[in-house]
């Protein structure tokens, strides 16, 4: 089999699985990780098609974007940090 096809298939599978995990994962940090994974594998496919420039731009841009999306997700969720009896404790 052609190695390019193998690489493409592997990257595509990673990408599809990753993108599913982004939306299904309950834990925010994992979702962010899978999002980054998806974006990097898309970049890998760009690289496979011989467009290095877009691959690097993809990493450059989305490496900055993922944390921002992550922070937005963080601000919108109401997750408790360091399980404590009540966040309003300590009047």
């Amino acid at each position: 089999m052609d190695w390019e096809l193998v690489a493409f298939l592997v990257l595509s599978v990673l990408e599809v699985v990753g993108s599913i995990l982004v939306v299904t994962n309950k834990r925010l940090v994992r979702a962010a990780f899978w999002l980054a994974m998806t974006l990097v594998t898309i970049g890998g496919i760009y690289l496979l098609f011989g467009s290095e420039f877009i691959f690097l731009i993809q990493i450059l841009v989305y490496a900055g974007t993922v944390p921002i999306l992550f922070v937005f997700g963080l601000m919108l969720t109401r997750t408790k940090i360091m399980d404590e009896p009540s966040t309003e404790e300590g009047t």
């Binding site: 962010a32 980054a36 690097l56 990493i59 450059l60 490496a63 900055g64 993922v66 944390p67 992550f70 922070v71």
Partner: peptide, 11 residues
């Protein structure tokens, strides 16, 4: 691009 990955790790 390599420089810009680390902040994600920090987060």
């Amino acid at each position: 691009a390599a420089f810009s990955i680390a902040p994600f790790g920090i987060l």
